[in-house]
Design a protein around this nucleic acid. Structure first.
Lengths: 187, 187
DNA sequence: ACCTGAACACCGTTCAAGT
DNA sequence: ACCTGAACACCGTTCAAGT
């Protein structure tokens, strides 16, 4: 029994029954081991989920070519697909943002946005808008059968449309809004 | 013992200990009643939370004056404040979007966006972007002590900045993106 | 060190029994 | 009809006891 086995079994279990259905007992059963054994490797269920989250983020591809908006777009779509595969994971990550922030992805995006011309305030605003949008979409939207007002809508297209609007906003702010670019003037 | 009493007690409890800490037993204790009595009025904990969510949405003020972007902005900020008061509520609503969609607010926003010139695809895109952004922000961001990269940031300003960028994107799409406005051309 | 399995303190939900 | 409280089937977590 090893850390890697536990992570793998937990991932398989989440794919089957979601984070909601993942249970320390079920996980132990899946591993063919007593409950206490699992706790010998993982201090807590929460810690296990945090570990899985970090593992997931490492799967996300960070593009290094193309214009800043295309890079941002590609990264967020990839992120959504990676996280969206595991039902309930986005909800968990969203509710535990403090310990779940993808430091590496963040750094990469910050660099791209700074290079594009955003100041610190702009970077923070665009970043939070992007992450919260993707998090929200993954938690509730991408797997939902779609609400009544959205019947017959392709959820994937909807996701990309929203993302495009968000990025268009970033582009527009870069051109016309001093608050988010260059230096702020006093007063 | 009445429905209203239960809703009120549940709200008070959530303000104190969050949705996570809201328990059918604690709720019954707060009401000074046995566990079974609560279940006589509320079929399930989930149903109770759905009821609370609908109750919350009724508090949101729908502005009826001003430009479309200002109206959208005001409504979403108001929504965030109403929902953000109750810790864990946004997470629940986000994870249960199907039964939790604020039909009235949706209708109001759809009308505003249509009047502004968006077609159905555009309305859906803007709407989902707005709701998911606000949901994400309420679930994870507004109450969080802020992540490492965002230290010293005013969360309220961050929220409004992101919202402004999103709305700027909607404005830009309205002017320059055929996909979201007017009629689509074939091919 | 690694593993077992009983035990503890909780849950949500149900239900016979009382008034 | 309204309410009680025990009971059921689960949780996460702990821990003495075994090897």
């Amino acid at each position: 029994l090893s850390d890697r086995q536990i992570v793998q079994a937990a991932q398989a279990l989440i794919l089957e029954v979601g984070v909601e259905g993942l249970t320390m007992r079920r996980l132990s059963a899946e591993l063919g081991v007593a409950l206490g054994a699992t706790y010998h490797y993982v201090p807590t269920k929460r810690a296990l989920l945090l570990l899985l989250a970090r593992e997931l983020y490492r799967e996300v591809v960070v593009p290094d070519k193309g214009a800043w908006d295309q890079r941002v777009r590609a990264l967020m779509i990839n992120l959504a697909h990676v996280v969206g595969r595991y039902p309930g994971m986005a909800s968990f990550m969203n509710a535990n943002l403090d310990e779940t922030t993808p430091v590496e992805l963040n750094r990469a995006l910050i660099a791209v946005l700074q290079e594009a011309g955003f100041n610190r305030r702009g970077v923070n605003a665009v970043l939070s808008a992007l992450f919260f949008y993707v998090a929200g979409m993954c938690s509730g939207g991408l797997n939902a059968s779609a609400s009544k007002d959205l019947v017959g809508v392709d959820v994937n297209r909807l996701f990309e449309d929203g993302l495009d609007i968000l990025i268009a906003g970033a582009r527009a702010s870069l051109e016309e809004n001093r608050k988010y670019t260059g230096r702020r003037r006093p007063g």
